[in-house]
Design a protein around this nucleic acid. Structure first.
Length: 130
RNA sequence: GCAACAGAUCGUUCUGUCGUCACAUUCAAUUGUGGAGGAAAGUCGGGACAACAAAGAGCACCAUGCUUCCUAACGGGAAGGGUUCUGGUUCAUUCCAGAAUACAGAAAGUGCCACAGAAAAGAACCGCCCUGCUGUGAUAGCAGGGUAAGGGUGAAAACGCGGUGUAAAAGACCACGCUCCUGCCGGGUGAUCGGUGGAAGGGGUAAACCUCAUGGGUUGAAAGACCAAGUAUACCAGCUGUUAAGGGUAGCUCGUCCAAUGCUGGAGGGUAGGUCGCUAAAGUUUGAUGGUGACAUCAAACGGAGAUAAAUGACAGAAAAUUACAGAAUCCCGCUUAUAGAUCUGUUGCUUUU
RNA sequence: GGCCCCGUAGCUUAACUGAAUAGAGCAUCUGACUACGGAUCAGAAGGUUGAGGGUUUGAAUCCCCCCGGGGUCA
């Protein structure tokens, strides 16, 4: 079981990002808003993820860094099932995680919510397949 | 000893698992080493560095404003002087200590000074005094003049206090004192201090306009250099054409540069990408020397963040312990602001002992 | 990374060339009118002028420094 989070798994290309926010579908999962899309172009990893914490809610860079690191850590530890599901259908996914809460939540809660939303993405994948 | 306040210094460490950025290593997997701060923050000053087919001169504009020094430079810092305030002390702003200080010029000029008050800056409303006229037993009334001694005001009232003087008064004059301009002597590099003489009498406000002195070219790493891909038409050179308007040069004037359009040739903008700029620095620590000090010089040692949607995290354990303010983006020097806890220093209060 | 602007009653704003009770409209409350409500009329309350310091006799206004909000530059 791989728990790495290298640069290949991060959403970096500006063309893909603008395409994602223009055409992707989205849902809300308590402190997060998710925008996702099956990749129209081949990418080097099964999933590419973009994490965003708005400056409007957190003025200090330290707090933004802290939240982003917690989200990234939670995703890194729990991503394997989503990867397996996508590899099974030979499909690639782009998604953006947008933190909407105005408070800094502890790691356990963030991890629970991340697991929930990954389950939902797996369901979406299975639905399209089925 | 405890508590509160203020200032200064330090401002978590180690182990394991998983992961991350850079570099080295390897064909690769891997492995190894290193990886945020005292403020990285605010962007308030000052530089380094870079560009600008010249960035020049005058005015305007902006900033600064006791002196000497430090520094690459500064609106920063050090030492000193003046002024003000506080505390103690003394016959006495006398002396000492601490704190604050945008601290050049108000005798170059202009403006403003609400309410109150006669009057807020070329003061006669009341009062006081003199003269003339009218009138009375007397007080008085009117007209002309002198006068800042007195008048409930106000933040501030025309140098203070005492005397001389006068019809009544007045720095009108005198002694003492204050302030200001200035000559001389002495101390100090100087601000300025002490002494002595001359001339003068002044309301406040320059963080109102202003005057004087000094400084300032403009724009900022989104600066800028290079590489590959690549095409509208900016740009350059030559020729043709126009002849004085116009445009650039931060605002105005001078000065200076450019020159419609067309043709020929060269060649490039936007966009997305890569390399450099990019970290060795006016560097840090220790010691010696010089200096009251900021700091400077010399010697030795150290000198391992460098990303580009952007790296330090998560979990568990241990150290008494759950932990402050807070995250590099070209780099420095300051200033300002935020800071749990620990240590030190000072002030105040309480308690105990002598 | 750089630059610029703005904070006044619950809301929208005056007063920004210093002058003492910071003015107005909407909203709120009380009373009148009405059988009741609305509209209308009369009255009242509501401001540490974002915070702190300074200049001045006097600061919303001038100066310094923080806090908050907004805009702009590829």
């Amino acid at each position: 079981m791989k728990q790495t989070f290298s640069k290949k798994e991060r959403l970096v290309r500006q063309r893909l990002i603008t395409g994602l926010f223009a055409d992707g579908s989205s849902f809300h999962c308590s402190p997060f808003r998710i925008t996702w899309q099956f990749s129209p172009f081949p990418i080097p990893a099964p999933v590419q993820i973009l994490i965003s914490v708005p400056k409007k809610n957190f003025h200090h860079a330290v707090h933004r860094n802290l939240i982003r690191r917690k989200i990234r850590e939670a995703y890194r530890l729990n991503k394997q099932q989503l990867h397996d599901s996508l590899l099974g259908n030979n499909r690639q996914l782009l998604f953006a995680v947008y933190y909407t809460s105005k408070e800094i939540l502890p790691f356990e809660i963030i991890q629970g919510k991340i697991i929930l939303l990954l389950q939902r993405l797996i369901e979406e994948n299975e639905k399209v397949t089925g």
